[in-house]
Simulated assay, not measured.
Amino acid sequence: MTRKPEGPLRKGWTTGACATAATRAAWQALLAGTFPDPVSITLPRGETPSFDLVKSETGPGWARASIIKDAGDDPDVTHHAEIIVTLRRAGPGHGISFHAGPGVGMVTKPGLPIGVGEPAINPKPREMMIAQITELAAQFGVATDVEIEISIPGGAEIAQKTWNPRLGIIGGLSVLGTTGVVIPFSCSSWIHSIHRGIDVARATGRTHVAGATGKTSESAIQALYGLPDDALLDMGDFAGGMLKYLRKNPVAQVTIAGGFGKLVKLAQGHMDLHSSRSQVDMDRLAETARHIGASKTLCTAIKTANTARHVLELCARENVTIASIIARQAREAAMATIDGACAIEVVIFDRQGAMIGRAGAFEQHAPQ
């Protein structure tokens, strides 16, 4: 995860907001013959941003406008992507329809807010674009019979850096954004993807999912159980975001996998495991070690250790199996958060992917 810079951070605009502004510009060009540039829209919470057009093209029965997405100071993979909207007049009674152009994905799995076979243009951006079409149609006295096609050059390549392939969104990016505003380092898109991963797992009948803190632990837990990709939740540091959603949207078995340092934080009650938002309490960790037989000398060393990894090394020298007790404590913290909705397992791996601690083990099964 990119580290948050110091000082005030600049907000940005979602792909949905950019597509909405481009839609308004292209529709106005179709109806009035001229593009508004810049084009202004009103977002759901009342903001009124203006966007400069990159493309402004027309032909018989169609108009096209595009906007370069500005995500502000957020490390968004779609920052500076070009959002292109092409509008085409449709026959009477057609209404408003949405289409995926190059770089916009198609939904292939159930459980997402958009149905299978639909372009990955989420409900709120659709609602925002429909509002622009409806408003201008009323102003010019015409019907709202129009096709809206959204394209994002390079979107298929950018999408490989997102969770879309795992969620069953194939061929490109999603057009997202419930408010139209990107809040820098809010991590809302990450947590949103965790939630959608749970939705897809439930909709496809998965009974066992796993959330991991990183790639090593994810690969290790996938190999242990033979889990398919869509049973893997990109939990990262957001244990709380995953567990709280699972509490209301349960899956029968949930494995939490991770490295020792991250899961010490979970064991100590932290639900956000990022280094800037939670820290390991070394005194508490030393007390945990004391309860399982660590010497006074070892406990003193733990209190002054540099990192959790250092603690693990110190304990290994005295054959104190601290990872096992941390796995148990982390499971207890997770179970308290999930309030009995799911069965919980916690597995701790070292940096080479070897299992060093486990609590609440599930029966290993054939690949789902």
Rank of each mutant, 00 (worst) to 15 (best):
F185V: 15
A143R: 15
H192R: 11
I169K: 03
T179G: 05
P153K: 02
V182Y: 09
E149V: 10
V175H: 05
E147D: 11
L176W: 11
G155I: 04
I183D: 15
G154K: 09
G180T: 04
G180C: 03
T179V: 05
G155P: 03
V182I: 10
G141A: 10
R166M: 05
P184D: 09
A137P: 08
T144R: 10
G172R: 05
I194A: 11
H192Y: 12
I169N: 00
W163Q: 15
D145N: 10
W163K: 09
Q139P: 02
V146T: 04
S174I: 04
I152F: 12
G155R: 04
Q160W: 14
L136F: 15
D145Q: 13
T178G: 12
S151R: 00
I191M: 14
I158F: 08
T134W: 02
Q160I: 10
A159T: 01
P184H: 02
Q160L: 15
D145P: 06
S188F: 05
A159V: 00
C187K: 10
G155D: 02
I150A: 01
A138N: 09
K161V: 06
S186C: 06
A159S: 02
I148W: 00
F140K: 04
S188T: 04
V142A: 06
S189D: 13
T179D: 11
S188R: 07
L136T: 05
A159R: 06
V181Q: 04
I150Q: 13
G154I: 08
P165N: 14
S193E: 06
G154N: 03
L136G: 13
D145Y: 15
T162A: 11
I158V: 12
I150Y: 01
